[in-house]
């Protein structure tokens, strides 16, 4: 019996703008520790919407979401942000970094927020992650001086800083060329194999999806 880190129970979501549409319809999935899962489906089928719900950023849905076996329903904002900080690492399609901070400080930010380690230790860990992703030489540069591929690696380092239960990505390679896309895939693969990290990635790249352990296919708000 493997360890379930993420589970949805009958999640449905309606959008009311401009007319009421059911974007997610009775989604039931569960993800085990160490899984490398991809979510695929046609554009507009609700992949992103599902991922934002799974990452606790969107709370407006029916059904239940369990992270680490705990229900996220009716939790206050402060509780959910703590969950995002501690248990979820998020990698966006666009490499959202804080331009005013250095690369290193960007990676450190969620670690400093968590406040479990001293600034020195967080900095040390951040350096380790940057090294592992091959961008340690960029550490002191301002974040807006990097190339797209480099930024995405920094974003992955940031997602790793608090050693999260699960890493989520919404088309993290969607904006990258083939070469960089492969680098990101290899990094994910390595994290799963070496660290037993759990990864859930939305993608529309069939190559990428093929190589993951498990594919969840969606169509019109339903899991097939």
């Amino acid at each position: 019996m493997s360890d379930i880190v993420l589970e949805t129970r009958k999640i449905s979501k309606l959008f009311h703008d401009p007319v009421t549409v059911k974007v997610l319809d009775d989604v039931n999935i569960s993800i085990n520790k160490g899984d490398f899962v991809s979510i695929v489906g046609k554009s507009g089928c609700g992949k992103s919407t599902l991922l934002y719900i799974l990452s606790t950023m969107d709370t407006d849905f029916s059904g239940d979401l369990l992270i680490d076996k705990e229900s996220m329903k009716k939790r206050p904002d402060s509780y959910l942000s703590r969950i995002r900080n501690e248990k979820i690492g998020f990698v966006f399609q666009f490499h959202y970094l804080v331009d005013e901070y250095s690369v290193l400080h960007n990676v450190m930010l969620p670690g400093l927020k968590l406040g479990k380690l001293s600034t020195k230790e967080v900095e040390h860990n951040a350096m380790q992650h940057l090294k592992r992703l091959g961008v340690e030489d960029q550490a002191l540069k301002s974040a807006n001086r990097l190339s797209g591929g480099q930024k995405q690696r920094v974003a992955i380092a940031r997602a790793l800083i608090n050693n999260p239960l699960i890493i989520m990505g919404d088309e993290p390679t969607g904006n990258l060329d083939k070469k960089n896309s492969d680098i990101v895939f290899d990094i994910f693969k390595e994290l799963v194999e070496e660290n037993n990290q759990t990864i859930l990635v939305v993608t529309h790249d069939p190559d990428f999806a093929e190589r993951t352990d498990r594919i969840i296919e969606m169509s019109d708000g339903r899991v097939l």
Binding site: S55, M57, D77, S78, S81, R82, R84, N85, E86, F90, F92, Y96, L97, V98, D99, E100, L109, P110, K113, L114, R158, N162
Partner: peptide, 16 residues
């Protein structure tokens, strides 16, 4: 806006 969104996505609360 972007910075605020990143902060929130990475675990800063509304009150932060």
């Amino acid at each position: 806006m972007d910075t605020i969104a990143i902060l929130k996505a990475t675990g800063f609360s509304g009150s932060d």
